[in-house]
Each structure stands twice: as C-alpha cells, then as structure tokens.
Design a protein around this nucleic acid. Structure first.
Lengths: 211, 211
DNA sequence: TAGATTGTTAATCGATTAACAATC
DNA sequence: TAGATTGTTAATCGATTAACAATC
C-alpha cells in the first residue's frame, strides 16, 4: 500500500520548506515558483521539485505553487494536522526546558503529562502540566494515549524506559538521552545528540581555524 | 596549508567514533580492527577506514588500531584538547538546561559565563556560574576570551546578537534559536533545530503508521 | 495562442562499499 | 615467514542537478 519509501534526507528538508512557506503566507504571498523559493532558501529549484514530487504533484505547470495549499499539504505530510499529544519523561532542567518551549504548541503538539522518578517533584506544575511519578506512567498512557514520549532522562535509564514505553504501544520517541536506542518496527525515533552536536561545532572550529 | 576540506558527513561521524572508543577504553580493550569496530557500530569497515584516512593514517597494517591512541587522536581532531571555554546567552529554561548538562565538562568544555537581558536574573548562579547582564557581554569577552557562545535566546534577538558576537571575534556559535543564521568566514556555527527535529519525528511516524 | 513553470527523465556529482596491493 | 589488516584505488550506489517535454 505504501508508496515507495521516501529518503530521510528528503524528510529532513520538509520542516524547512514548511517554515519558509509559513513566512510567505504571513507576508501575504499567495503563489510561488520553485525558482523563486529556491533563491530565497539557497537551494536549487530542481531539488525543491524533486522533493515535493516524492509525495505527489502539488504544483501547476505555468503557474507554480499555491502557497497556502502547499503549506497545508506539507503540514499534513509532517503529521501536524494529527494534533499530536506528548509526554515528557524526566523533569530535570532539560525536561523543563522542553516543556517551556512554546514553539511546539504553535506546530500543533500538545504536552499532556510530565513524569519523574523523584517523588519530591511530583505535584509541581510546569506550564500548567502536573508532574507525575514514573510508577504511574503505564496507567496514564493507557487512559490518555499520548502519541509521543520525550526522553529527557539519563543514559542509564533510557534503555529500560524504552522497553516500558514499547509495551504501552506509544508510536514516537523524541530521544535526548545519550544512548543509541534501537526501536522496534512500527515505532519511530528521533534522537537529538547534544553532546555530539557540540563536538561537531568544535571540529568545525578546528577546520576554520586552520584555513 | 589546509589539507583538502573534509566533508561534513565525515565530521559528523567523528563524535560517534569517539564515544565508541571511549567505551572500549573503559572496558580495557587496547586494540581494535576496523572490522570489529564496524560490527559494534553497525557501519561498514570500509567507511571507518575511509573516514579516518581523511585525517591521516592512525592504524597499522596487520594489527588494527590502538584504542587509546586513536581515541586521543580523534579527540584532537574534535578540538577537545583545546580546553574550550563557553558562555551561554539567554538564561531561560533552555539556557539553564544547557548549563546543567554535565556531559560537556566531561568532554573538556568549560562554562565561564551566562548572560541575560533581564536584570532580575543578574547575580543568580547556575552551576556555580553567575548570570551577568547582556550589556556587559563585550567587556567580559574582551577579558575572558571564551571560544564558544551558546545562543539560547528567542529568534528575534538572534541576528542582532550574532552581529555583536561577530565584532568580538568569538570563533564558534552553538545556535539553539530558530533563525537561519549566516556567519562570516572564520567563524563556525552549529545549529540545533529543536522544532525541525520534532516535526521530523512526526513525519517519521506518518511513514511507520502507513507501512 | 505564447509564455511560464511544472513533473520527470537523463546526466552529473559525491558518498559508500568492495577489492586488493602494501606492509606490519 | 604467514596471517592479518590497513591504506587506497576502483566500482557501485544514491542524491543532486540539468534538461526538456508536457501542460496549464
């Protein structure tokens, strides 16, 4: 049933198209050609057309793309119209920071719970969402069926937690723990490797320093 | 002088090699072949050898690689032996989370200052480092010469702040703001796009959902 | 209709993998 | 020396760019 698998490099470019289209929309632009968009984004027009055609024909020959239509279609591809709900596991600094990140709501993600294994934190509220004890995770998920779990816990507990989450049938993991987690089929994972990212910056600095 | 430029895809793999080698070292393994390492990491041995040879020959025919030596050499490539110092700009949730992220110290990065434009926060300490007012940024940099500035501020202020930082001669920017920042030659930037990452996860979920 | 611009096929480029001679 | 494994070249694969026929 599934059309042939879309390359991850293409998927990773969709959010960027989405952001640019969102801005065009805000500026009242109602149509755009791949050439025009390519110049604003600093990519080739070919790439834009190729990328979009992985998912279907959203444009019209001789006209270009309708900004609002394309924006909404890419939103659908990104699953933003599904009204994703999420829970954060780990109410440390990082958990708090993610909870406080207002941009997610703008994209249709809704935080419905925060969990921590420290009983001292239970009952506190972050952005109006209460912190619950990790022991109650399974029962909460069974009732509220969140789409995404955000892992903001130390590396050592991450693998165990993933196992528990797998059993609950949760569909997406946004992983900030250091671990290299393997997820079963039918589950999606996206890892943000902060420490790798900082080392990459440092390496880039080495390169520029010796130019 | 610079040997031919190393591809970014290769640079981005170095931190991962570094982590694996660190673990081998911890486990007392003192030599490893590209084949053995490739199996542990789930990549090809060819790729490991190609990647390493972008920077020089670190191995020995018939023997493989000395773990400690290779670990230290990759550490050098990553600039981890430079003892990088960093400042965080923006003491909101994200700034706090980054400050509290102990993994950076382990890799030789040292936080020496935090700045915020909110006078109410000035004087507070995070992880033993005091929050200063943004007005004092330039004078602080002039005296303490930090290597890296972490941008944990809203999108609107990011472009301005980058301009100020450019004037100070700072060499690396770790950017958590939404903006697509352009940096001048001689400056390195690494952007962490949290909201793009979350949308990517959501898109991956769409793909797995329809399999 | 003529002009514009897509969707798509073909050509190019770069990155990954395979193969093997060099050598420890 | 023989066996092992690198460093490096050649082959393959995939992603990007160019070109153009289809068509609005």
């Amino acid at each position: 049933m599934s059309s042939k698998k879309v390359a991850l490099v293409v998927i990773r470019r969709l959010p960027r198209y989405y952001r640019y289209l969102s801005e065009l929309l805000l500026n009242g632009v109602d149509r755009i050609s791949s050439k025009d968009l390519s110049e604003r984004m600093g990519v080739t027009a070919s790439q834009i057309r190729q990328d979009l055609n992985c998912f279907g024909g959203f444009g019209q020959q001789g006209y270009g793309y309708n900004v609002e239509y394309l924006y909404r279609e890419i939103g659908k591809l990104l699953g933003l119209e599904n009204g994703r709900t999420m829970i954060i596991i780990g109410a440390g600094n990082l958990g708090h920071a993610i909870a406080g990140y207002s941009n997610f709501e703008r994209r249709g993600f809704r935080l419905i719970g925060i969990f921590d294994s420290n009983k001292g934190l239970v009952g506190d509220k972050v952005k109006g969402v209460g912190i619950m004890h990790s022991d109650d995770l399974e029962s909460f998920i069974a009732v509220n069926k969140p789409d995404i779990a955000v892992l903001a816990i130390p590396k050592v507990s991450a693998q165990d937690m993933l196992k528990r989450l797998t059993a609950t049938g949760i569909k997406g993991i946004w992983n900030f723990s250091m671990s290299e987690l393997k997820v079963p089929d039918g589950m999606a994972i996206e890892t943000v490797h902060l420490s790798d990212s900082l080392m990459t910056l440092s390496c880039k600095m080495m390169q520029t320093e010796m130019e």
